[in-house]
Computed example of a mutant assay.
Amino acid sequence: MGLHVANYTAADIKALRERTGAGMMDVKKALDEADGNAEKAMELIRIKGLKGATKREGRSTSEGLIAAKVIDGTVGVMIELSCETDFVAKNEKFIALANQVLEVAVSSAAADLETLLAVDVEGKALADVVTEEGAVLGEKVIVRRMSRVEGATVDAYLHKTSKDLPAQVGVLFAVDGDGDGAFTVAHDVAVHIAAMSPSVLGRDGIAAETVENERRIAMETAVAEGKPEAALPKIVEGRLTGFFKESVLVDQAFAKDAKKSVGAVLEEAGVKATAFARFRVGA
């Protein structure tokens, strides 16, 4: 290959960097590819999602907000939009962007994040729309995750952990019945999930090896404490129940009435829990 003489100048690089906020190498690469045509290079940079990304690439996006919506009482959609500072999290533009992302998630019926980010929004992929808005806001902005929960009755609950910030915790919760009773209990349990942070719906959601490991630890601890052999099985089961109460939704003590489990509360209402999702910003 012969030597390729670049047909652009240092001034061209500088101008393009100022227009895009992209890094030196990215700009040079784009200009090489575009044979020095600044407009084409600009387009290449945008396509590659590098617009304004250099300065922000390594930054952590631990702030942001959760947005959620329920359609016809049966389909819940929730997204987390992340940014770098709480200053941007409460910015009107950022909140409007989150609502736009949520609307796209609803209207496109995307089942996962990858599909959502690829959705065409007026000729651009949603991912690019978000990157460009981030460039305007001067922070790295990403759609961190999305969830879609369907059921006979679905409730969405958004919780503010600070009065001057948008919602930081969001929950979607589905039950298998409908009507006022089902909606009321679904809402109460959604609020419970926000507060108590279960990791799975039922015990079968925990891997068998995790349960075995907990059982082994409980047994070894009880033996080390010198508990009588005859009492060991009961002690071990008691400790396992305690473990389940921490992470399994239906086993947790209900936030509004700790004397009952969430499972019992749902049973009294004549419904079963079928699915849930819980997001907390940055977690």
Rank of each mutant, 00 (worst) to 15 (best):
A89E: 08
G123E: 10
I71Q: 14
T115G: 12
H187W: 14
E80D: 03
E150L: 10
E57V: 11
L113N: 08
A190R: 08
R145I: 10
E139I: 04
G177T: 07
L126C: 01
S82G: 12
L65K: 01
V136S: 07
A194E: 03
V185F: 05
V106T: 10
V141P: 02
G177Y: 11
D128S: 13
D112L: 06
A174D: 04
R144G: 03
G73K: 13
S199T: 15
V154L: 06
L158W: 03
T85A: 09
D86Y: 02
R56H: 12
G134Q: 08
E122C: 09
L158Q: 06
E132C: 01
V70C: 11
L126P: 03
A105G: 06
K69H: 15
S199C: 08
V129A: 05
A118Y: 03
L113R: 12
E92S: 15
S82N: 10
T161C: 01
T161N: 03
A195Q: 08
V185E: 02
Y157N: 06
A96D: 15
E84T: 07
A109K: 15
G76V: 04
E139W: 01
R148N: 07
V106N: 08
A194P: 05
V189N: 02
V136W: 07
T131S: 11
L97M: 03
I66M: 01
G138M: 09
T161S: 09
D176F: 03
A89N: 06
L158A: 10
E139K: 05
V101K: 02
S62V: 13
G64K: 10
E57L: 02
S147D: 15
L158K: 04
V130S: 11
D72P: 08
A167M: 11
L97A: 07
L158E: 03
R145D: 09
L102I: 00
F87V: 05
Q168C: 00
F173S: 03
C83I: 06
V75L: 14
I71V: 15
D180F: 07
A190W: 04
N99F: 01
L81P: 04
S199P: 09
T184C: 02
G123R: 08
V189Q: 08
G64E: 08
S147I: 02
I66N: 00
V154Q: 09
G73H: 13
Q100R: 07
D112K: 14
L172D: 09
L117R: 12
K124F: 09
K163V: 15
F94S: 01
T153P: 11
L113D: 02
T74F: 06
F94E: 00
A182R: 13
C83R: 00
E57I: 05
A105E: 04
G179E: 11
S107M: 12
A109P: 11
V143E: 00
P166R: 01
H187L: 06
V130T: 06
V104C: 00
L113M: 04
L97F: 01
E114I: 05
S162D: 11
C83F: 10
A118P: 10
Q168F: 06
E92D: 15
A194I: 02
E150S: 14
L65F: 00
L137S: 05
G170M: 11
A182E: 02
V141H: 03
T131L: 10
M196R: 12
Q100M: 11
G179P: 11
A186G: 14
